[in-house]
Nucleic acid binder design. Structure first.
Length: 531
RNA sequence: GGCCCGUUCGUCUAGCGGUUCAGGACAUCUCCCUUUCACGGAGAAGAUCACGGGUUCGAAUCCCGUACGGGUCACCA
């Protein structure tokens, strides 16, 4: 691979004519990755990171990879990886390459790549950019405690303190050899320069600069031989030819370390983009896994039951969200196209997305807006698809699913007041079965001594209406009102109560038309008998 | 606490030096439509662009401070 950003005279001359960024973009095929850790359910912030990666890749005709970062074996949670795969699939942002789909750089699970990292750590040691450290966890804990007692709450293993620790920088070479040969446990730490400004250009934040004085000698290879995130992520991104690292802002503080590692390896670093965080709607802090159901909305794409605690968390899918609505909503938490458009299919998002227009500040999540997105998508759904979703909901409730034309009719009648598929039943149970009761409040207000009498006459008249459809029913009803000298407000609500049990909802005549003559007349008779 | 990042209506945001005493969406309120609810339509209210200094003929837009918020400081990612 030819590196572009170098300081040979050719490139300098070049840069006069070609902006650097364009230059980089055209020289490298876009390959991005989403690299979650399977420590539990993937939360919506993670899904958004995956989404942005996916959109960016697709827009540039590149590849979107999924890599599982499971180097911490103590945090393994069964089912988590499957959950991640399923969640991404549900959102429609499946990887082109990676865990679950395979590809030229397999394996994509870091635990299975374990043997590969060692040589890179050795390479760093050989070049003097890393060293062995024999301090036990207990040693470190002790040092930290002492430092804390002495007024330093944040002891770091760095260019100063490492001189007082047990490592290959302080121990005699023979001693190090002996310990290594004896199989004494050790870690490999990066050896950071003492006082150096590390600068890099973040795609979203511009130039970010940190002095190594504030960084520490992070562990690269752990005592169990596994790499830490810092080593694994840099090595894998290099091996997998990742062109852009798009990840959450929580990684920003360690980005300078990663930049340094690329430099130590002599590799060209990918371009970085650190995404703003998703903040909780109430109070302070980032949206966390624990915030979900407590605040009345899901934080996970799919329903999740923790295998350790048995704790159940609700998911957007089960809540009735449409995947494209969920993706649209998520995309707009931190990004927008710059005009006033808000509704985008996934394909349209791919078209419109622009990493440079991602907002810098964290976005506070608003469930009301999320519902609005779903409502918009629900209304745009083809009738048959909506009917299918509603049928599934009815089945879950143990309610008989009506004939297709009736089901679709019910859907179209209730669509305007539904945000989720299940709202069709919740707002109009009477379309699927006779009312289980009558709104007592409205009965008190509208039902009179003569109501039953009028309804029975109406029923007789309705019986003659053929076909039994809204228009004819309504004119029939109105002519009866005129003949009996009543206003709509007197009999209308009563008729509605008879048919639906409540006084709100779509046109009562449309409802009767859908229910059919037999059912409608039966309901009228029922309320009369009962009162 | 150190370091890093951020700060435009309640919320998500547009804005990238002048046509903006700041536009859209959600939420809120009013009216119309519907003799119901919702949808839809029209409108209202809502941001002295965190604050203070600069730079400039001119700043929400550039620079510097301050405040506030967030992130991060593990043999976790």
């Amino acid at each position: 691979m030819r590196s572009i950003g170098n300081k040979d005279s050719d490139c300098t001359r070049w840069a006069i004519f070609v902006p650097l960024k364009e230059n980089l973009m055209s020289s490298r095929p876009v390959r991005v990755r989403f690299a979650p850790s399977p420590t539990g359910a993937l939360h919506m912030g993670g899904v958004r990171t995956a989404l942005y990666n996916y959109l960016f890749a697709k827009q540039h005709g590149g590849k979107f990879l999924l890599r599982i970062e499971d180097t911490d074996q103590t945090r393994f949670v069964p089912g988590a990886e499957e959950y991640i795969l399923e969640a991404l699939a549900w959102c429609g942002i499946s990887p082109d390459e990676g865990q679950g789909v395979g590809g030229p750089h397999a394996p994509y699970r870091q635990s299975e790549r374990k043997p590969m990292y060692r040589q890179y750590a050795d390479q760093l040691i050989a070049a003097g950019n890393a060293y062995y450290a024999f301090d036990t966890p207990e040693d470190l804990e002790l040092v930290r405690e002492r430092a804390k007692a002495a007024g330093n709450p944040n002891w770091q293993y760095n260019s100063i303190t490492r001189t007082a620790m047990k490592n290959s920088m302080t121990l005699p070479a023979e001693d190090v050899e002996r310990r290594l040969a004896a199989g004494e446990p050790y870690v490999i730490r990066v050896k950071l320069p003492r006082n150096e400004e590390v600068k890099f250009q973040d795609r979203i934040r511009g130039w970010v600069s940190v002095n190594t004085l504030n960084l520490d000698d992070k562990v690269l290879l752990k005592g169990d031989g596994m790499p830490t995130y810092h080593l694994a992520n840099v090595v894998d991104d290099r091996l997998m030819e990742i062109s852009h690292v798009i990840r959450g802002e929580e990684w920003l503080p360690s980005a300078p370390l990663h930049i340094l590692l690329y430099r130590f390896f002599g590799w060209e670093a990918p371009e970085f983009a650190h995404l703003p965080l998703l903040l909780r709607p109430d109070g302070n802090g980032k949206l966390s896994k624990r915030d979900g159901d407590r605040l009345g909305f899901p934080v996970f794409p799919l329903h999740w039951v923790s295998p350790e605690t048995g704790e159940v968390s609700s998911g957007y899918r089960e809540r009735g969200f449409l995947p494209e609505a969920f993706a649209n909503m998520l995309a707009f938490l931190g990004w927008n196209p710059g005009d006033n458009r808000e509704l985008f299919s996934l394909a349209e998002l791919v078209e419109a997305f622009n990493l440079d227009k991602v907002h810098k500040a964290g976005a506070r999540f608003d469930f009301e807006k999320a519902k609005w997105f779903n409502q918009q998508f629900l209304r745009a759904l083809p009738a048959a698809e909506l009917a299918q979703k509603v049928a599934a909901d009815l089945t879950r409730r143990g309610v008989a699913v009506p004939a297709p034309h009736v089901l679709e009719g019910a859907c179209s009648l209730l669509l305007d007041r539904a945000v989720f598929p299940q709202d069709v039943y919740e707002n109009g149970p009477y379309l699927f079965h006779a009312p289980h009761g009558y709104d007592p409040d409205m009965m008190g207000k509208k039902w009179t001594d003569t109501s039953a009498e009028h309804l029975r006459v109406l029923a007789q008249r309705f019986a003659t209406v053929e076909p039994f459809a809204a228009e004819a029913l309504e004119s029939n009803f109105k002519s009866y009102l005129a003949e009996s000298g009543q206003g709509f407000g007197q009999l209308g609500p009563v008729l509605r109560l008879a048919i639906t049990g409540v006084t709100v909802g779509p046109s009562v005549f449309e409802t009767m038309g859908l229910l059919g003559k037999t059912e409608s007349l039966e309901r009228i008779e029922s309320i009369c008998r009962a009162h």
